[in-house]
Simulated assay, not measured.
Amino acid sequence: MFRRTRASVSRMPGAVRLITIAALLLVAAAANLVARSEPTSRWLPLLLVGVIGGVVAGAPRRLWPLPAIWLVATLLVTTTGATVDGTALVVSLVAGAVALAVAIAVDVVPFLRKRRRGAGT
């Protein structure tokens, strides 16, 4: 099911770009709400729709932009002068950093495997 959805969306480059932008904006909005200590019922749906929409549709081709935008949005909240709970901010930053590390690892593993196979032949 995911492959068919991804294949049909990839035939429309404009749709892929729109889904990418929408996914990044939804993840950024969720990060903003988390840093402001909003209830989970407000930010979790935004995060789920953003991540699922971005990954299932194949936009972005790499996973690292989603947690990266989470970190950027979380840091931007601190510069707005809004009331930010320190604990929520730290949890959001740590979760974003761990997610970024995992996403980079997932993105790099195929490249390293391909390189290793190329060197072995």
Results as ranks from 00 to 15, higher is better:
Met1Cys: 04
Arg3Val: 06
Arg3Gly: 07
Arg4His: 11
Ser8Cys: 07
Met12Pro: 00
Ala15Phe: 07
Leu18Gly: 15
Ile19His: 03
Thr20Leu: 15
Ile21Ser: 08
Ala22Ser: 08
Ala23Val: 06
Ala29Asp: 07
Ala31Thr: 10
Ala31Asp: 02
Arg36Tyr: 03
Ser37Lys: 10
Ser37Leu: 06
Pro39Glu: 06
Pro39Trp: 09
Ser41Trp: 15
Leu46Gly: 05
Leu47Glu: 03
Leu48Asn: 01
Val49Ala: 14
Gly50Phe: 03
Ile52Met: 12
Gly54Val: 07
Gly54Lys: 00
Gly54Ile: 04
Val55Ser: 07
Ala57Cys: 15
Pro60Leu: 07
Pro60Thr: 09
Pro60Cys: 07
Trp64Gln: 02
Ala68Phe: 15
Ala68His: 03
Trp70Gly: 06
Trp70Ser: 08
Trp70Ala: 04
Leu71Tyr: 05
Leu76Glu: 05
Thr83Asp: 08
Asp85Glu: 09
Asp85Ala: 04
Thr87Leu: 15
Val90Met: 03
Val90Leu: 09
Val91Ser: 04
Ser92Phe: 05
Leu93Trp: 03
Val94Lys: 00
Val98Ala: 13
Val98Lys: 02
Val98Pro: 06
Ala103Cys: 08
Ala103Arg: 03
Ala105Lys: 08
Ala105Leu: 11
Val106Arg: 13
Val106Thr: 09
Asp107Cys: 08
Arg116Gln: 12
Ala119Trp: 09
Thr121Asp: 12
